[in-house]
Write a protein that binds this DNA or RNA. Structure first.
Lengths: 342, 342
DNA sequence: CTGTTAGCGCCTTCAC
DNA sequence: GTGAAGGCGCTAACAG
């Protein structure tokens, strides 16, 4: 295995020149940098990760705390992980994946940080009362939360502005003339374990619709026949906001299609909220206020790396929701589709 | 940050004694080991990953090559990743996740290996003609493939025993009285490019049914209407073995449901072979000889770690198939469901 | 712009 | 059963 010493000898320069040619932390003349480069290639030199870590306390590795549990949604999980790993690699970082949850997640983070394995931590699947927030607040290592814990003091977080997203969705329905709206939420378990954005979304829906004087009903996606439940509880309902898993969205559409075949039930305007899955290939394609995992994942990594370099203070980045129109929200009176927005 | 030196001083022993107390590579008297342990806790000592790597060329990290592409199935991906990370952590290893595919996947593996970041590599989503096989064959680092590439010479692989799985599936149908069985295979392309397990499964089906004197027909899942093809070619057919993609399984069930509504066609016993997807939530739920990601993922990691320790030769581990009964295979004569197996 | 050199923290061979 | 000491390969002062 070739070492930096071999490269130095081969290129006829000193060890430090090789090091600086590699890191760019000191100017190196073009001529010598070329000779160094040539030697590196000839010897197939690869800087040893361990030696670099030891000497510089930089590892070029970040930890991704992605706790997995019963309620983990495969598509969202995969999309986030892919976005984060891809963004990290683009910046020259590798990712160690931590999948434990609860107390074990805390211990894993503690371990990789204290042993100096990682330069920073990305926290996925943030709970309202997340134990990892308390840990990282006191831990003197850069971290970024993908989601907003209740107490986000002294933390860096990036998240969709769920309140704004909820209002945006409601606004679309209201603009189309709807005054009686159903909200299909997540499973009861998610509310119980205190998953933050799930709670915030539902709360904002209720607050905002009340403010607008809209009639509403909440249906959790544990409900066997969600549509029937809506029809029974809120007979005048004309719009539905889906804030649940991709699977249950599909189930809901199935129920709707059965209803349509039977010829019962008035048409419903439908849109999905905070969807991390693709709503364009559903039948019918659905309007959406998407979660955009790729975007937030990338943002989180970039923010983290910025902080690894400079170590700035706490900051919460709530990104503005976007509305994607696919024709599943209809004007209530005229029966026309709403204008298409971006 | 406490170093091993601090621990040594605090415990009143030498540095090497601390090191050996930690690694257990040399006997240490119970008394001193306790003093060392106490000092470690008091100082909150955490061995530095980089220093350990440099000195020992052991990293306690493995790479997981889990290429992600358009066709990646979220559930299978998540299940495999979880199984692998969990198994690795249990053995004291961290996992760096590599998500690139194609040539970039090869380069990523090369990089983490050459820089000495990892002690071994687990290869997921193995293709018939996988570029990573060629790389790792020549790479002098322990690796384990989750799946069998065409050329598995000099490699360690863990996979389902597809021959045994095929026989198990056939046995179930035969035990239920079926003597005329259809085999719905993969697309013709997969057979043409010579994908290993696909060929072996089909070949074993034909060999074994011939041995048992069973009447059969093979239908590739390229066939437009698979069911009609079976009805035409093998009118007496009473059992179907599905060895194709989840999508085509669903299509087949749809064809069957149409047939049932028309009232034509005798009932068929159905079961899936080597399914990595959930067959319990299909309609109807299907008997299965599953692929079992959790099990093979764990096996792969354990085999890898064994090889990191001892570096043995190539080996192919084919694990024994399991039969899951969900009532989709009926007793031919009495019309009773078969006994439920584990 | 380049070279010299002292560590980084731990492992491990050698001596006792 | 324990200690002493020489690296592992690289980074980053310090010195020109």
């Amino acid at each position: 295995m070739a070492t930096i010493k071999d490269v130095a000898r081969q290129a006829g320069v000193s060890i430090s020149t090789v090091s600086y040619a590699l890191s760019g932390k000191r100017p190196v003349s073009e001529a010598t940098r070329q000779r160094v480069q040539k030697a590196i290639e000839e010897l197939e030199f690869h800087p040893q990760a361990g030696a670099k870590m030891l000497a510089s306390t930089k590892t070029d590795i970040i930890a991704l705390s992605a706790p997995m549990h019963e309620a983990t949604e495969p598509i969202a999980f995969m999309t986030f992980v892919l976005a984060i790993v891809t963004a990290a690699r683009r910046k020259g970082y590798d990712v160690v994946l931590l999948t434990e949850n609860g107390e074990a997640a805390v211990q894993d983070i503690e371990r990789v940080v204290k042993t100096g394995l990682v330069d920073g931590v990305v926290v996925m699947d943030v709970q309202a009362n997340d134990e990892r927030a308390e840990l990282l607040r006191t831990m003197d290592i850069p971290s970024v939360f993908l989601g907003l814990p209740d107490n986000y003091e002294a933390l860096a977080c990036v998240d969709l502005d769920f309140e704004a997203a909820t209002r945006l969705a409601v606004d679309q329905l209201v603009a189309a003339g709807h005054r009686s709206i159903a909200f299909v939420g997540h499973t009861q378990m998610l509310y119980d374990i205190g998953k933050n954005f799930v709670l915030r979304t539902r709360a904002e829906f209720e607050r905002y619709t009340a403010e607008l004087g809209i009639e509403t009903v909440f249906v959790s996606s544990d409900t066997e026949n969600m549509l029937a439940e809506i029809r029974n509880t809120l007979p005048g309902c004309t719009g539905v906001l889906l804030d649940c898993s991709a699977v249950r969205v599909r189930d809901f559409l199935d129920e709707l299609s059965v209803e349509k075949q039977r010829g019962t039930g008035d048409p419903l305007s439908i849109l999905t909220l905070a969807s991390s899955y693709d709503t364009s290939s559903l039948n019918p394609p659905l309007d959406a206020v998407p979660l955009e995992p790729e975007k937030s994942g990338r943002n989180a990594v970039e923010l983290l790396i910025e902080r690894i370099g400079q170590g700035t203070g706490p900051e919460v980045h709530l990104y503005t929701p976007r509305y994607i129109s696919r024709g599943s929200v209809f004007q209530l009176d005229g029966g026309h589709s709403t204008a298409h927005h971006q």
